[in-house]
Design a protein around this nucleic acid. Structure first.
Length: 469
DNA sequence: TCTGGGGTCCTAGGACCC
DNA sequence: TCTGGGGTCCTAGGACCC
């Protein structure tokens, strides 16, 4: 294990909710909840003001609304989050090429592999720690200057302790774990603080009378393997003792691509299920193609009315990125499951991904077969799913009514930029403000007002702001 | 009050091959 | 006539993470 705390773990504070507070001045200092807003939605992220009311990530939004009825409830704006994430990660990469991004708002950095590596290699223990502390504080300040967002950082000589450190630093802090202090820091924490210990592992450990990390650390590795299984047991045993030699690994290629939908109302009809599988297959293929990959194993996921969940998979003779092939495979898999009682969620995924699309003989054969059988009228595009019109859809209606989602960016011909605060009964309410404006005024329009249109997210800081002194 | 969507990794049993 | 052991692939499910 390294002698200096040269691994950083960066974690943005309440990322989605904080982005919304910076983008929407009227929400600063207020409880903000970002997540699914439908009947079956859950909270993705909430602001610290909302946490005071007991709101948490992964909580049903319906529960959050009871706890915090006056919060601002917003749909996620993933495009905006991704843009900001790229901006932040670019700053992180200036510290080292060895960056392992864990999600949009989290990454490990190995400073020893970057421009500060040589200086750190020659530094004393105290000097090195001080340099690392300065680097981490500069990073946090740079991120806040560029985005208005705060980040927390843990610095340690292992990924495990860097992650524990950033958790303890939250919000808007830095915790440096001095090498040698690992067990002292970990010992008093509940076992759940260890990454990889979730509800099931916590229960298994509780049954064995182990509540804290220190208590786990006193057990032999063999005992932990007996309790938790081979891989998990030895992993937890080592972590509890503060031992973690895992390297920071630059980002690997994805191993699967999947899409899924939870329906507001359970699907009851076989035709509905087949129609939705076609749509999901088409969406999955779009993502697959965007990534320039193809896959060999098709998986469907079915969650029933009672939340019981199952998967069925089929491995094809070769990789494909053909929507027709994936949709027909998904349909075939669906025939193996009972739909009685209703379907709450459907998913379609592809794994065993190939680096790039090979000559897709399997898709060609399927297309030829379809043509022979006279089903080939959709030969105008290979992406066309084998879908029929949904039984519930308003067939023959070419225009879809504009849907306005709370949080959505809009622009009005007369009033300029703003965001949707709410909509209903033929009206949409918009607050006109931007990241660099004072809190804005609210106006209400007809939902079909031609002067109101959806807009792209604005940057959180005006362009060019960083160039100014 | 009722549980999202996108992933990763591990385990275990059966098929199949040598 | 009965009986091997190991390796790999496929499938299904579960735990966990953000």
């Amino acid at each position: 294990m390294r002698t200096l705390p040269s691994i950083l773990h960066l974690d943005m504070d309440a990322f989605f909710a904080s982005v919304e507070q910076v983008a929407k001045p009227s929400l600063r200092g207020k409880p903000v909840i970002v997540g699914g807003l439908g009947q079956r939605g859950v909270v993705s992220t909430c602001s610290y003001e909302a946490r005071v009311f007991g709101v948490r990530s992964a909580m049903a939004t319906a529960v959050a609304r009871r706890l915090c009825p006056n919060g601002a409830y917003l749909w996620p704006r993933f495009v905006a989050y991704r843009d900001i994430s790229e901006q932040v990660m670019a700053m992180v990469r200036e510290l080292s090429p060895l960056v392992e991004q864990l999600s949009v708002d989290e990454a490990y950095v190995d400073l020893a592999a970057g421009p500060y590596g040589p200086a750190l290699a020659e530094a004393t223990l105290d000097g090195g720690a001080e340099l690392i502390r300065a680097i981490a504080e500069d990073l946090r300040a740079d991120i806040e200057r560029a985005t208005g967002l705060t980040a927390s950082v843990g610095a340690a000589s292992s990924k495990l302790m860097a992650k524990i450190g950033s958790e303890q630093a939250k919000p808007n802090g830095l915790v440096l774990v001095t090498p040698g202090q690992e067990r002292a820091v970990l010992g008093p924490l509940p076992v759940r603080a260890l990454p990889g210990v979730g509800p099931a592992t916590e229960q298994a450990l509780r049954r064995a009378g182990l509540l804290t990390v220190a208590e786990v650390a006193e057990q032999s590795e063999e005992e932990m393997v007996r309790l938790l299984g081979r891989a998990h047991g030895s992993g937890v045993s080592l972590m509890a003792k503060g031992l973690d030699g895992r390297a920071v690994v630059p980002d690997r290629d994805a191993k699967s691509v999947s899409v899924e939908d939870t329906y507001e109302v359970d699907l009851m009809e076989r035709d509905q299920v087949l129609f939705e599988l076609d749509r999901l297959a088409a969406r999955c293929v779009r993502r697959l193609k965007a990534a320039g990959r193809s896959g060999r194993t098709v998986v469907i996921k079915v969650r029933r009315f009672d939340f019981s969940t199952l998967t069925r998979s089929e491995t094809l003779p070769g990789p494909t990125d053909d929507a027709r092939v994936i949709a027909t495979t998904a349909r075939r898999l669906a025939e193996q499951v009972s739909l009685s009682g209703g379907i709450r969620l459907l998913g379609v995924g592809v794994s065993q991904l190939a680096e790039y699309t090979q000559e897709d003989l399997f898709a060609q054969a399927a297309a030829e077969l379809a043509e022979q059988e006279g089903e080939g009228e959709g030969g105008d595009g290979p992406d066309e799913p084998v879908a029929q019109a949904p039984p519930t859809a308003a067939a023959g209606q070419p225009f879809r009514e504009q849907v306005w989602l709370p949080g959505q960016d809009v622009v009005h011909a007369e009033h300029g930029r703003g965001w949707v605060q709410g909509s209903g009964v033929g009206r949409v309410t918009v607050r006109f403000e931007t990241p660099d404006s004072p809190p804005g005024r609210v106006r209400t329009f007809r939902i079909d007002d031609a002067a109101l249109t959806p807009a792209e997210p604005l940057p959180l800081r005006p362009r060019g702001a960083l160039e100014q002194p």
